[in-house]
């Protein structure tokens, strides 16, 4: 029995298509996977309004900051508050507000978690959902790779630390957790494994759950990540979605203006994030 008979063929096509793409871009945008779907939908609007070709890549908030500072990207996508050092070198525009949602598979009957339970799950103290009154099912933890703003927010909230970072006295996220990159990856993994738990952008989680992905967002410390709770910062893990840049060239300014326009904010809302006009 063969698993993928035409796998090599498809792989060749993927690589060929990739290298056949245009090589010169007027605007290069990279960074947070949380912001990426918004920008992805803004690009066609941008070109419709006369904007030039845009290259888009993920890589996480860290990559967005790094690429913008290096000049390889004109705009960086950053899904967290800017650090003081970054604020001195980069300008930023908040295009939306988001929260970190704790998600589990739809088959999991659990509806809420406390911060301490979340910590016990991610340190490996709780290994089976039955310990929390759920089914007799092993807990599958999904965490994010270092460099993503999502894990920084998660670490900040829980006081845990990724085992991939330089070791400190902070308790570590268990090593058997799956380390993933994008929000979509986390959502797909949690949606596919009934025992999984992950943390992702609430906007992406909502949008994908509504589209049919079998995941659900849990209430954290008794607060549901609703628009109101995010707006009022009652939900414990809230973050801004930024577009950062070094220089507001006409192209960059035009793109930022589009993101803050009614059309751009409609995209933000469509993807489940909180538009900045609502703040």
């Amino acid at each position: 029995m063969r698993i993928t008979n035409s796998f090599a063929f498809h792989l060749t096509r993927v690589v060929a298509l990739t290298f056949a793409a245009p090589l010169v871009w007027a605007l290069d945008i990279s960074g947070a996977s949380t912001v990426q779907p918004v920008v992805e939908r803004l690009i066609p609007l941008f070109t419709q309004h006369g904007g030039e070709a845009v290259q888009l890549a993920g890589g996480g908030s860290g990559a967005g900051v790094k690429n913008t500072l290096a000049g390889t990207s004109q705009i960086g996508m950053v899904s967290r508050e800017l650090k003081a050092s970054e604020q001195t070198e980069l300008k930023n525009t908040v295009i939306a507000m988001d929260a970190l949602a704790i998600i589990v598979n739809q088959d999991n009957p659990l509806t809420q978690l406390t911060k301490s339970q979340l910590i016990e799950l991610y340190t490996g103290k709780i290994t089976n959902w039955s310990a929390l009154g759920g089914p007799d099912l092993a807990v599958v933890r999904v965490t994010k790779e270092v460099g993503r703003s999502t894990i920084e927010l998660f670490e900040h909230f829980t006081g845990l630390q990724s085992p991939d970072r330089e070791q400190t006295d902070k308790p570590l996220i268990t090593k058997d957790a799956y380390v993933i990159g994008s929000n979509l990856e986390s959502l797909t993994l949690v949606g596919g494994l009934p025992g999984a738990i992950g943390y992702v952008s609430v906007g992406t989680a909502r949008a994908m759950a509504e589209a049919g992905l079998p995941v659900k967002v849990l209430t954290l410390d008794g607060v549901e990540p609703s628009d109101a709770a995010i707006r009022e910062r009652r939900y414990p893990i809230v973050r801004p979605l930024n577009l950062v840049y070094r220089e507001a060239t006409p192209t960059v300014a035009a793109f930022l203006a589009l993101a803050l326009s009614g059309e751009g904010q409609a995209v933000v809302k469509l993807l489940g994030f909180l538009p900045v006009g609502d703040r």
């Binding site: 959502l187 797909t188 949606g191 992905l213 079998p214």
Partner: peptide, 19 residues
């Protein structure tokens, strides 16, 4: 190939069934 996010939903459904 299609770069459709919706494909992730189908992948998750298949994995859920397999699990």
């Amino acid at each position: 190939l299609t770069r459709e996010e919706a494909m992730a939903i189908e992948i998750a459904q298949v994995a859920r069934r397999a699990d």
